[in-house]
């Protein structure tokens, strides 16, 4: 996984609330394997008209936001289904971070597991950012080390769960760490099987 330390990229404003995972990746595309890539179908039904032509009024399709690496959206971004493909779509499209006043819990966890930074910023700061990016498309910097967004000569501090920050800064996944605790896990499960024998599914044995 690519670490996220200090990233500078064009930010695209999406002045919408409740961009749920069904919109990020409509269910009908979820038969794809990851190798086929999810970038082309990101936000498909918002980006494309029914005949498949791009909707020119959708911010992500406008030339001035081409190549955007960050999205700035309104509240409740990524709510809904647990489909990690919503994160694959963003990541495969080239999005490195999403900034919103609130984000779905499962979405945010999935994002961190794929090196995509979920940033929670208060509603007023997000509205200001959306307004300024709409008036003037701009490159901004997100410094995860310093937990700061640098935009239009201003610094916006943000906070993030320390665990997520460490994982993103280092590009770690959990598995190596878990496997280093294999002995403790085995011991826990053996003891647990003694104290909660009813937990095991009764297979009529």
């Amino acid at each position: 996984m690519t670490p996220f330390t200090r990233v500078t990229a064009l930010a695209c404003p999406l002045a919408m609330a409740n961009i749920d995972t069904d919109q990020l990746i409509p269910a009908r595309f979820m038969r794809r394997t990851r190798k086929e890539g999810y970038g082309p179908v990101l936000l498909h039904d918002l980006r494309f008209a029914e005949d498949g032509t791009p909707r020119t009024d959708f911010a992500l399709n406008r030339p001035e936001y081409a190549g955007a690496g960050f999205l700035v959206a309104r509240r409740n971004f990524g709510s809904g289904s647990s489909r990690e493909a919503a994160v694959y779509a963003l990541a495969d499209y080239g999005i490195r971070a999403v900034i919103a006043p609130s984000l779905g819990d499962i979405f945010a966890q999935n994002a961190v597991n794929n090196g995509l930074l979920p940033v929670r910023l208060d509603e007023e700061a997000v509205e200001n950012l959306i307004a300024s990016l709409t008036a003037q498309p701009a490159v901004i910097t997100i410094d995860l080390q310093a937990m700061r967004i640098e935009a239009a000569g201003r610094a916006l501090p943000f906070s993030i769960d320390p665990v997520w920050r460490t994982k993103l800064l280092n590009g770690w996944d959990d598995l190596d760490l878990t496997q280093s605790h294999a002995t403790e896990i085995r011991a826990f499960m053996a003891k647990d099987a003694q104290s909660r024998p009813w937990m095991a599914p009764d297979r009529g044995g």
Partner: peptide, 17 residues
Amino acid sequence: GIGASEVAHVLMTGTLW
């Protein structure tokens, strides 16, 4: 509910962070 990376983690370890 969990995402696919977490599903893989539970499959491989029987645990979840």
